[in-house]
């Protein structure tokens, strides 16, 4: 399915929650959505028979310096098409609803985004640090992260 057609479908259904289509230079193209309605839209994308995006390929946190984003890469096993979905978040309070009940695959990705960016996924069934130790300070993939000098007395 063409990204433009998909965008129009979503726009017709969700109105202002669907912000724009980010196609220039992006492959696959991204549908930018409002963070608050991520879960609704995700469920629609999965359940609509014409779309049926049944697999979440990748979920990544991104730090665009002035704001954060969460990017979802979706793929449909049935129709063999792919699309991206993106939600921009403010730097100060990066939080959005979880999608792990839509795609169970999301859980580990969300934990990783939480661990490395500090993005909070509300309603997640298990949101803990996944890669770094529990008592690690800060979120290393943020652009303003300062490398610590010592961790448990060992030079970093």
């Amino acid at each position: 399915m063409e990204a433009q057609v998909l965008f129009d479908t979503l726009k017709g259904k969700f109105g202002d929650a669907v912000v724009e289509l980010q196609g220039e230079g992006c492959s696959p193209a991204f549908v930018v959505v409002a963070p608050a309605s991520v879960q609704e839209i995700a469920r629609f994308l999965r359940d609509d028979p014409a779309l049926s995006f049944d697999s979440l390929m990748c979920l990544s946190g991104v730090d665009y310096k002035e704001k954060f984003a969460v990017a979802y890469h979706l793929h449909s096993m049935k129709h063999r098409h792919a699309i991206g979905m993106k939600a921009f978040l403010p730097r100060e309070t990066p939080s959005l609803p979880t999608v792990d009940d839509v795609w169970p695959a999301a859980n580990f990705h969300e934990r990783e985004a939480f661990d490395l960016f500090g993005i909070v996924f509300e309603g997640s069934k298990d949101l803990r640090r996944i890669l770094l130790p529990e008592d690690w300070e800060g979120h290393p993939l943020r652009k303003d992260y300062k490398y610590p000098d010592f961790y448990h007395g060992i030079k970093v």
Partner: peptide, 9 residues
Amino acid sequence: PPVGEAYFR
């Protein structure tokens, strides 16, 4: 590379 985003699998 030019400004842009790509996902390759």
